[in-house]
Simulated scan of single mutants.
Amino acid sequence: MNEAPATDQLSLIFAALADPTRRAILARLTAGEATVKELTEPFEMSGPAISKHLRVLERAGLIERGRDAQRRPSMLRAAPLQQVSRWTEEYRRFWDASYRNLDDYLVTLQSKEQNNGHHQ
């Protein structure tokens, strides 16, 4: 039962990362905070459309939106990406083990093939 909130958060993160515009926004925010106006510049998108993307990123916990007088800069919050990293790490270990098994099998096949070639 303790897994549900983390899984829900992970689902929100993956949903947010599924969109290339949101990934591009996150990439831009690695350089520092930016306003909606600054974030619209590289896209052929309106401010309200970018704001919708920002709300998705904020709900997933990937950004934080501040208030600085009239500005509302968005800042990257990379910590939730650690959840994605931990989740994918499980699969990386699985694939690493699978590749090691495949490598071992190929070495065995090559050895048998070489031994068969010498006996003929």
Rank of each mutant, 00 (worst) to 15 (best):
A27M: 02
T108P: 00
V56A: 10
D68L: 14
A69V: 11
V84R: 08
L109D: 00
M75C: 05
R72S: 14
E41R: 15
G47K: 15
R67A: 02
Y91E: 06
D96V: 03
H53M: 01
H118P: 01
H118Y: 03
L109Y: 02
Y105M: 05
W87Y: 15
P20W: 01
Q70A: 10
S85Q: 13
A49D: 01
Q70M: 02
D104W: 00
A6C: 00
R77P: 06
G117D: 11
A78H: 08
E44I: 09
L57Q: 13
P20M: 01
A18L: 03
V107K: 10
Q110D: 15
L12G: 12
G61T: 01
V36T: 15
E38A: 11
A24N: 12
E33D: 15
K37S: 14
R72P: 09
I25N: 02
P20A: 08
A97H: 04
D19H: 12
S46P: 05
N115V: 02
T21M: 04
L57R: 08
R67K: 07
L17R: 03
P73Y: 02
E58W: 03
R100P: 00
E44Q: 15
T40L: 00
E113K: 07
D103C: 11
R72G: 07
V56C: 03
K37R: 15
R55Q: 05
L81W: 09
A16K: 02
N101C: 06
A15G: 14
A4C: 04
L39N: 06
Q83G: 09
V84K: 04
Q114N: 13
A24M: 13
P73C: 04
V36A: 15
M75W: 12
F14L: 14
N101H: 07
E89L: 14
R72Q: 14
H118R: 15
L12K: 14
K52V: 12
I25T: 09
G117M: 14
A34E: 06
T40A: 10
E33P: 13
P48R: 06
T88R: 11
R28F: 07
L102S: 05
Y91H: 10
L26I: 08
L109S: 00
Y105K: 12
L39E: 02
A49S: 09
